[in-house]
C-alpha cells in the first residue's frame, strides 16, 4: 500500500441565483486564453458559458469539462423550482450533441484549466456579483505508484489472448531477435 499524500482540490462554487447574466466571465476567459494572451476576445471560445434565458429567469454558468467523442445514449432535462432547463444544461462535456466548448473555427475541444498561473481563475475575479467564488482545500489521497505504460499494454494483451498464447508469442519473438 502507498502512503498518504496531500492533494489540492480546486473548486469554483457557482451561485446561479446571484448571476446577473452579464457574461464578463466569458469575456475574460476568452481573452486570457488568446494567443498572445489578452490579444483578442471572443465568448464563443470561452471555457465558461452562461446558459441564459432571462425571461425564464434561467442563468447557469457552466464550465468546459472533458471531451467526449460520442453523445450520451439519452439526454437529460432538469426541472428545478418549476423552471425547465434546456437539454444537457448542467453538463460540462465538449460533445458532438452541441456547439459549446469547441473552438469555433477548428471544432477542437476546449477545457477549463482554472487559469493556470493566476492566483485564482479570472472568471471568478471578474465576476463582481459573487456568482462565482473560488475555493481550495487539501485532501489526503493514497499515493499509489502509477503503473508503467508498457505494463498496462502488456497486461491488456495478456487478458485478451490468455496467458499461454501471450507467453508463446513472447518466446517466438525472442527467438527471432
Amino acid at each position: 500500500m502507498g502512503e498518504k499524500k496531500k492533494k489540492i482540490i480546486k473548486t469554483i462554487k457557482i451561485d446561479a441565483d446571484k448571476c446577473n447574466g452579464c457574461r464578463a466571465c466569458e469575456v475574460i476567459c476568452s481573452a486570457f486564453h488568446a494567443q498572445p494572451k489578452y490579444s483578442s476576445n471572443n465568448p464563443a471560445r470561452s471555457r465558461i458559458r452562461i446558459i441564459r434565458y432571462p425571461l425564464k429567469d434561467i442563468y447557469v454558468p457552466v464550465y468546459a469539462g472533458e471531451y467526449t467523442a460520442a453523445e450520451c445514449m439519452g439526454r437529460d432535462k432538469y426541472v428545478v423550482d418549476g423552471k425547465e432547463y434546456e437539454e444537457c444544461a448542467f453538463c460540462r462535456a465538449s460533445c458532438p450533441s452541441r456547439d459549446i466548448f469547441k473552438e469555433p473555427d477548428s471544432g477542437l475541444p476546449l477545457k477549463c484549466d482554472m487559469c493556470e498561473g493566476e492566483d485564482e481563475p479570472l472568471c471568478v475575479k471578474w465576476c463582481r456579483v459573487d456568482a462565482l467564488t473560488y475555493e481550495e482545500r487539501e485532501e489526503d489521497v493514497e499515493d499509489v505508484e502509477a503503473p508503467k505504460e508498457l505494463d498496462i499494454g502488456l497486461e491488456s494483451l495478456a487478458k485478451k489472448y490468455g496467458a499461454q498464447e501471450f507467453m508463446d508469442a513472447v518466446a517466438r519473438m525472442s527467438m527471432k531477435a
Partner: peptide, 9 residues
C-alpha cells in the same frame, strides 16, 4: 432578478 447589460457588474 437584478440584471446587467453585457460585461457589466
Amino acid at each position: 432578478r437584478l440584471i446587467s447589460c453585457y460585461n457589466c457588474p
